[in-house]
Design a protein around this nucleic acid. Sequence first.
DNA 1: GCACTGACCGTTTTT
DNA 2: CGGTCAGTGC
Length: 653
Amino acid sequence: MSDGLNSPQREAVRTLSGPLLVLAGAGTGKTRVVTHRIAELIRHGTSPDRILAVTFTRKAAGEMLERSTQLLGKKRKGQEAQPLISTFHALCVKILRRHIEKLGYPHRFTICDRSDQHSEARAALREIRCPDQSLKPADLISIVSQWKSRSFEPGRAASIAESDREHLAAAAYRRYQSNLKSKGMVDFDDLLLLTQQLFARHPTVRREEASQFDHILVDEYQDTNQSQYQIVKGLAAGHRNLCVVGDDDQSIYGWRGAEVQHILSFQKDWPEAKLVRLEENYRSTAAILNYANTLIAFNRLRHEKVLRAARPNGQSPRVMQLRDENDEAEKVVADIQKQLSEPGVRAQDFAILCRTNEQPRVFETELRRAKLPYVLLGGMSFFDRKEVKDLLAYLKLIANPQDESSLLRIINTPPRNIGASTVKQLLAKATAQGCTVWDILPAHAHETTTKFQQLILSLQKIARKASLVELISDVIAQTGYRQELERQYPDPNDREARTASIEEIINAASLFDVRKKRDSLLEDFLDDIALGTRDTSDDKENQLQNNAIALMTLHSAKGLEFPFVYMVGMEEGILPHKRSVEIEGDAIDEERRLCYVGVTRAQEKLTLSFALGRRKWGKLRDTIPSRFLYEMTGQAENIRKRGSNRSRSRNAV
DNA sequence: GCACTGACCGTTTTT
DNA sequence: CGGTCAGTGC
């Protein structure tokens, strides 16, 4: 086999049966191993559709599928059976769509988005009469999410709650969960938790689902939480052909319940598991890798390992010291522009990595001013836009009239004389009769509400026959949404931006019309959107992405690589983030791993930048360079002696 | 029922 | 600073 693999890689590829743990450091060819392994399984006679590979993002899933089919030399994609490559969440949605009523949920359920979640949390807190100050909706969401990721139901949560705050949260969790359930809504954590419960309570379902596959692969295993692990276990228990791939040093989702423990103790649950370590890094130069190795060695709880650089030497990483965040953006962009003028350097070779979602703003303005192409990856901004939310609410309501939050969102959008007081009456009636607002509408017998229901019913009829694009056009036409936009935004520039987002949805829908089967078109489309936005494989957008500077958070940079990487905002309070510094314990270690992930994205040249001051809510405040800067450069003893050591950071500007 | 105004508050990271 | 939401006037 002239596959160009090194010997541990080959071992990982060729160990085809039984449990296998691949500890793969950053840049050691993990993706290659996984794709080769899938191809190898198929070559050895496994039917492709008996293979399940679970990835972390949809983008990773798409890439993996493409590369493994390439390896097999398949020309006619889609004609033959394909391996199922999916994220955990997408996998669970499919399973739940088949069986959720066994858990007492309505057969039709909607996945709630962040704002749904927020309003449900708010409602639950109101119900337990919690004064808003002691526990805020956002706090409740994160506590509940932690509990769910550890498979705690409300009862269990109540029994382990210690502080007042936790008791309060447990009580609110109970309400939150039963409200969601009665409305047929599931949040993101439920997708995993409910699947796990389904498997635990209905062994036949578990066996039925498990029997579809003979081989299971899990990528980014270090980010697996309790529910995900139980699901994997349930699926793999029969054949035990389970291959997990990950790197404990890149575990950056602890706040979401990921437990590094799973990867550290894999061999306890799977005693016959084979272990393969990949430690030869092909991605970065030695100079960059030295920084990474020095940094991560400060973490104590980890698999001891040192990545070997396959590429010797290289340029030493630079540290840029800037005045404030504007100066930082300006100088970083100027630096990129300078490098772009050299032959063979392309925009897509650059990435600017940030800790928070707010940081990219300044860079965006600066990049626009410099007329450089860029893509902002990961920001959910598109689906946060009002028009998009409205339109999707219509579609969700058409798909499932019981979806109350969608109904409430658009019942009077565009205004149709169903005001706040009417809605209040409807809600009161619904709670009194124990049904949803939709069921109340006919009984309410007002001209406005009946008309509204007629509208939705007629759109439902269209949905059954027409394509998605036709349906969406009809929604816009019949609701008068376009006229409403024109009325609300007399400024043509404003209006154009709003119409543009609607057109984007139509584009996405048209792609869907082509490739999906008829019967569950709308449901599939909505699931797809709820599960993540990554794969808007619009040609125009793709082209743009392929020739643009990438701007993103460290979290979304996982799995990617770039010749030139700029890690910006290397300051105490940002990386490590303030919230992690405040918490006792190992939160700092995760920040350090995050920094490590950033550093190991760089192939040729790494630039670290920090500002001496940063504006927050309009006020300029002094900052301290990140401790990680000192750790990486072997000056750890200087940490916290602010001022005196600033001069030691090389100033590249 | 609807539109406008000002107080309030502060998302770390994402499927 | 900028987005959200409640309260007020029409």
